[in-house]
């Protein structure tokens, strides 16, 4: 223990408070239904079969696929469109650039519910309700992503593109082969945030999706919970399955993430 004994004691208590609900969830996911209402959190009879069971009771694999599919497309498109716009804002000079950028900035604070209603009406009119396109396309553009990558691109020395331009490189090649690789940390941070945000997004899919085969994980989970709410063991198994990709992502990318939050936000 030594000098920092008290600190470690406090931190350990907090860490346990954070961890115990997750532990309870994992333990409950291995319980038989008969033990769900028992206070002992540890199953007396372990039921790993709960996990395959959720795939039988609901199209869980389909939900998984939909979430990953939509999140992957949104991440790809949003990162690309943001990076291209950021290149335009950070590395090129053109009339009206700074005014347009201010307009972008001004919209970042607009609450989602304000734009959600007209966007829903637009989807109705374009017959995009209940479709992958309706889930992906409105999320493929981000003023915040543009802002974040612009800030990164501004820190790159102008000599980089000048050297490439003297070699006769096109703007697309300067963007793709010089600026984008140099903005890698920013691009990765934006990609992680976008992926996670889309993977967990709830409001938009909830209003947009009606068909079972198009449900994403959060929507599928809520229906599962409504219909099989008493089968807490299965619900917990589904919840564990839901957050596992996030935990894996976090453990792999946590350094980027922590730096990204600290950098992106402080400059904002």
């Amino acid at each position: 223990m030594g000098r920092y004994g008290a600190t470690h004691a406090v931190l350990t208590v907090v860490a346990l408070t954070m961890l115990l609900p997750f532990a309870w969830m994992v333990l409950a996911s291995f319980k038989p239904l008969s033990e769900i209402e028992q206070i002992n959190p540890i199953p007396t009879e372990w039921k790993p079969g709960n996990y395959p069971k959720i795939f039988e009771q609901i199209p869980f694999a389909k939900y998984y696929f939909n979430s990953l599919f939509v999140a992957a497309w949104v991440t790809l498109l949003q990162t690309l469109t943001s990076a291209m716009a950021a290149y335009s804002f950070a590395r090129l000079r053109w009339p009206g650039r700074d005014q347009l950028f201010k307009l972008y900035l001004a919209t970042i604070m607009i609450p989602g519910v304000v734009t959600m209603i007209p966007n829903y009406a637009l989807m109705v009119r374009l017959h995009l309700l209940d479709s992958y396109t309706g889930l992906i396309v409105p999320a493929a553009f981000s003023a915040f992503g543009t802002f974040l990558l612009r800030q990164f691109m501004l820190t790159i020395s102008p000599s980089m593109d000048e050297a490439a331009a003297i070699d006769g490189a096109t703007h697309w090649r300067i963007f793709w082969e010089v600026i984008l690789p140099l903005s890698r940390p920013g691009v990765i941070v934006l990609a992680i945030f976008t992926f996670m945000g889309t993977y967990g997004s709830f409001f938009w899919p909830l209003v947009l999706i009606k068909s079972e085969h198009l449900r994403t994980l959060p929507i599928g989970m809520v229906y599962f919970d409504t219909i099989y709410g008493r089968q807490t063991n299965l619900i917990m198994a589904a919840s564990v399955m839901n957050i596992i990709p996030l935990i894996i992502l976090f453990l792999i990318l946590q350094n980027y993430l922590v730096k990204g939050i600290q950098l992106g936000a402080l400059k904002g």
């Binding site: 690309l80 469109t81 943001s82 291209m84 716009a85 290149y87 335009s88 804002f89 090129l92 000079r93 053109w94 650039r97 347009l100 307009l103 972008y104 919209t107 607009i110 304000v114 734009t115 209603i117 007209p118 966007n119 009406a121 637009l122 396309v137 409105p138 493929a140 553009f141 003023a143 543009t146 703007h171 963007f175």
Partner: peptide, 25 residues
């Protein structure tokens, strides 16, 4: 023109899914 070309995908989405909805709402 090059700048606009780079901006176009993002700007069109911005106009359709952010700016227009704000005024429309």
């Amino acid at each position: 023109l090059v700048a606009l070309a780079f901006l176009l995908p993002n700007l069109s989405g911005f106009l359709v899914f952010t700016l227009w909805p704000v005024f429309y709402s």
